Simulated scan of single mutants.
Amino acid sequence: MGATGQTGVAGDLREFFLTSLPAIFTQILVPVTAVFTTFLLARYGPDAVAAYGVASRIETLALVGISAIGMAMTPFVAQNFGAGKHGRIDEAIVFAGKASLVIGLCLFVILAFAGSYVAKIFTKDPGVIEFVSLYFKVVAFSYGFQGLVNVTVAVFNGLQTPLTALKLMFVRSALIVFPALVIGSIFGPLWILIALCAANILAAGYAHHLMIASARQWRHTRVISNSVRNISKTFRKRVKR
């Protein structure tokens, strides 16, 4: 293999690792947050830990739709970004954001009322069932906002800016979620759940900030800003109903 070929392979490997490693670390931060939450809840006994385990399993199944939106966004954005069809990307961001908020709101309504019944499928312990029900009445409110973060991460990966996606998830975990959970743990299990819900909402706000900053970079500020406003407007309308 000549020097030109070796240079080409080295360049390809560099591009591969620059894209893949940030994406890998981004995915690692999600279970790390769950482990940290379990660690804090362990202070309040085995029932709290067991309830969080049950709630997490139900949550994983419930968020399949929102997760699917995020997974679909990355290849869609990458394809249209490469083709120079930025208008389609803007439309997809609006659709994905609205869909995440609507699905999240529907999940909140369903799980807030039916969470205890779903929990009975996994356990018969009344203490665990009560905590699972409380979990969904608090944390499920933020599912739509969590979906917005997922969509934003997917968009940045699709735009070939995985470091920005990693920055978003790092700030969400290390600077928003972890401190909020620590403060909440001082006051009790309920406040841990409130902190988790509030952190998801704050993280969505930071995702909004990064999206606007990215829009300025690509000279699409007006379109994406309108997209975010449309998402917020739709969410307010849904809540009023």
Rank of each mutant, 00 (worst) to 15 (best):
Q6K: 13
G8F: 10
A10K: 12
E15P: 13
A23G: 08
V30L: 14
V32P: 05
A34I: 14
V35D: 08
F36H: 08
T38F: 05
L40K: 01
Y44F: 15
G45Q: 03
D47G: 09
D47H: 10
A48G: 03
A48R: 02
Y52D: 08
Y52R: 12
G53C: 11
V54H: 00
V54C: 00
I58T: 01
I58M: 08
E59I: 04
E59L: 10
L61G: 12
L61M: 11
L63Y: 09
V64H: 03
G65S: 13
G65A: 15
G65L: 15
S67W: 09
A68R: 00
I69A: 08
A72D: 11
M73I: 11
T74S: 15
V77W: 04
F81A: 09
F81C: 06
G82T: 09
H86I: 12
G87A: 12
I89C: 05
E91G: 10
A92P: 12
F95H: 08
G97A: 06
A99M: 13
A99K: 12
V102D: 02
V102G: 01
I103K: 05
G104D: 00
L105R: 06
C106K: 10
L111P: 01
A112T: 07
A114W: 09
G115M: 01
V118H: 02
T123G: 02
K124F: 11
D125A: 04
P126M: 05
P126A: 05
I129G: 00
E130P: 00
E130Q: 05
F131T: 05
V132C: 01
S133P: 02
S133V: 00
Y135F: 04
F136G: 03
F141H: 06
F141R: 05
F141I: 14
S142L: 08
G144E: 01
G144F: 04
G144W: 04
F145C: 08
Q146I: 01
Q146M: 11
Q146W: 13
L148G: 02
V149F: 03
T152L: 02
A154M: 02
G158P: 00
L159N: 00
L159D: 00
T161K: 15
P162R: 03
P162H: 03
L163E: 11
L166K: 08
K167R: 10
M169I: 07
V171L: 11
A180C: 06
I183P: 00
F187R: 10
F187E: 06
G188K: 01
P189R: 07
L190Y: 14
L190Q: 09
W191Y: 15
I194G: 02
I194V: 14
L196M: 11
A198R: 06
A203Q: 05
A204L: 11
A204V: 10
H209C: 13
H209W: 15
L210Y: 05
S214Y: 06
R216P: 05
R219Y: 12
R219P: 05
T221V: 13
R222D: 07
V223N: 15
V223H: 14
I224S: 11
S225G: 04
N226P: 01
R229S: 07
R236L: 12
R238Y: 09
V239R: 12
R241H: 14
